[in-house]
């Protein structure tokens, strides 16, 4: 299993209200965390640009951070908003391109990097299905299934009821499973 971006209290640097962290300190301590989250949620290809965007927001708003929440929670909320906006913009762009006849109109195809080449095709199907999920469902399934966050943790960091997270997760799994079964069905039909 790859290293996860799960925020743990042990990894979070000590914070004191009297001495708010400097931008450089936050960048040094949390670059990896932000980059991993961005890479997971938006794909490796856009991770650098999105990390840059996230830290520009951090630079602008660090003075407002009063330490009421964990710094990692605050950072996650920025990542979630920045990546969410990026995903929605990408979808609009693709929709416009499809409407203008310049694109096939498929949902975002996730950049595939399978270690097992035999599973490449399955990965491609799954990636396409993941790209079709709504941003909220996609975030829920990635954070839970890949990053290993519990539903209460996700709910706390997103500021939503835990039941909402369960619902999003359930629907995401169902959609992904449906996409996978359609793949299997189409393979059977082809044969």
């Amino acid at each position: 299993m790859l290293p996860r971006a799960t925020p743990t209290r042990g990894r979070t640097p000590p914070f004191s209200e009297r001495t708010p962290p400097s931008f450089d300190d936050v960048y040094a301590a949390h670059f990896g965390y932000v980059f991993r989250l961005a890479a997971r949620l938006a794909g490796r290809g856009d991770a650098e640009d999105l990390t840059q965007e996230v830290f520009l927001v951090v630079h602008r708003r660090l003075a407002e951070f009063r330490g009421d929440a964990e710094l990692t929670t605050w950072l996650f909320q920025i990542v979630y908003r920045v990546v969410g906006a990026h995903v929605r913009r990408s979808r609009v762009r693709r929709w416009l391109a499809a409407a203008l006849g310049r694109d096939h109109g498929d949902a975002q195809v996730w950049p595939v990097g399978p270690r097992n080449l035999e599973r490449a095709e399955q990965a491609q199907w799954l990636a396409r299905a993941l790209g079709k999920l709504s941003w909220e469902k996609r975030a829920a399934v990635i954070l839970h299934e890949v990053e290993g966050w519990t539903c209460p943790q996700i709910a706390e960091r997103l500021g939503v009821p835990v039941q909402t997270v369960y619902t999003r997760l359930h629907h995401a799994r169902r959609d992904l499973a449906r996409a996978m079964s359609f793949r299997v069905a189409s393979e059977v039909t082809d044969e």
Binding site: Q122, L126, I142
Partner: peptide, 11 residues
């Protein structure tokens, strides 16, 4: 499968 397609997230 998701872990597989999302690849290595480390910078």
């Amino acid at each position: 499968a998701l872990d597989d397609i999302l690849g290595d997230p480390d910078p």
